[in-house]
């Protein structure tokens, strides 16, 4: 297979993965599978007027949606779908995931602030709370996967799981990363910045048209991205019998995304003080334990 064809298929799979995430998201909200739904809501946003709120912060208002979708696209482009099929193979891969995804929350704060409305502003500050809560455990568990691979290349991290996937090698890390991934993608039960029943849409409630579209698309891509990150870091990436390697990555990613939405549907929204408290009281110590455990096992 030529690299070109490979790239084409992967792009296609990627797009269909995002679409599948859109369908699943709709399911998690309405409880019904509606294959055409996401297209229609996409077109609805197209047909809509653009509304800019009064006295908005112009710089933030314009940059936040672009920053949001931009960092997410950058992140997905460093995740390997198959050996050799990675758009950008960064030497700092693992670090980059963490660094780039921080901007998701920053973009949310920028948007929440820019709108100049109370609901959005509260949503924006909640986004930062969420960042402060999840980022320490995320960084620490990422370090543990790097320790095992002795490299920050994501392809190396996948290769390092050849004998035993990280989900079994460092289960504590997996659990922490899985939960944090939900929080990164601000999916329910961690949808604090956009909380429907509380802030009536929060950060993005007042966006219409193109900017809303960018946020919605970005979020769907983000879900796909963090799912793929879980797969790459813990579920052995492309490894699997019989099927071509990128298919494995794709299937695993969809499965993880589906589980994200399922968790969100059946859980009540977490309180942001609980989120902070649990992450710092239990998440951080557990993540440190995880590093320690991996460190000891590696030296044995």
């Amino acid at each position: 297979m030529t690299p070109f064809l490979n790239g084409f298929i992967i792009t296609l799979l990627f797009l269909s993965g995002v679409y599948a995430a859109a369908v699943m998201e709709r399911w998690s909200v309405t409880g019904h599978v509606n294959w055409g739904g996401p297209v229609r809501s996409f077109l609805l946003l197209f047909a809509r007027e653009e509304i800019k709120t009064r006295k908005h912060d112009k710089v933030f208002f314009e940059t936040a949606p672009i920053l949001f979708i931009g960092v997410i696209l950058l992140t997905i482009s460093i995740l390997p779908f198959a050996p050799g099929s990675v758009i950008i193979d960064l030497g700092t891969g693992a670090l980059f995931i963490n660094a780039a995804l921080v901007y998701v929350m920053v973009a949310l704060l920028m948007m929440g602030w820019a709108i100049n409305g109370v609901y959005a502003m509260i949503g924006g500050w909640r986004a930062i709370a969420q960042l402060i809560a999840y980022s320490m455990p995320v960084v620490m568990v990422l370090t543990a996967t790097v320790m095992r691979a002795e490299s920050m290349f994501l392809t190396d991290i996948v290769e390092s799981q050849k004998g035993l996937w990280n989900i079994l090698y460092q289960p504590v890390g997996f659990i922490l990363f899985y939960i944090s991934a939900l929080a990164i993608a601000f999916l329910p039960p961690f949808d604090l910045p956009t909380a429907g029943g509380e802030l009536a849409g929060g950060v993005w409630a007042d966006l219409t048209g193109a900017r809303k579209l960018l946020f919605r698309l970005g979020r769907l891509t983000l879900v796909f991205t963090v799912s793929a990150a879980v797969v790459v870091l813990y579920l052995g990436g492309w490894m699997g019998p019989w099927l071509p390697d990128f298919v494995w990555t794709f299937l695993k990613t969809l499965l993880v995304a589906a589980s994200f939405f399922a968790v969100g549907r059946f859980m009540p929204r977490i309180r942001h003080d609980h989120l902070l408290e649990y992450n710092w009281k239990y998440g951080v110590p557990l993540a440190l334990y995880n590093i320690f455990q991996v460190g000891v096992v590696l030296l044995l």
Partner: peptide
């Protein structure tokens, strides 16, 4: 259920 953010409960 809506206030809690539990879509399942609401539905």
């Amino acid at each position: 259920g809506t206030a809690l953010g539990s879509q399942w409960m609401r539905d």
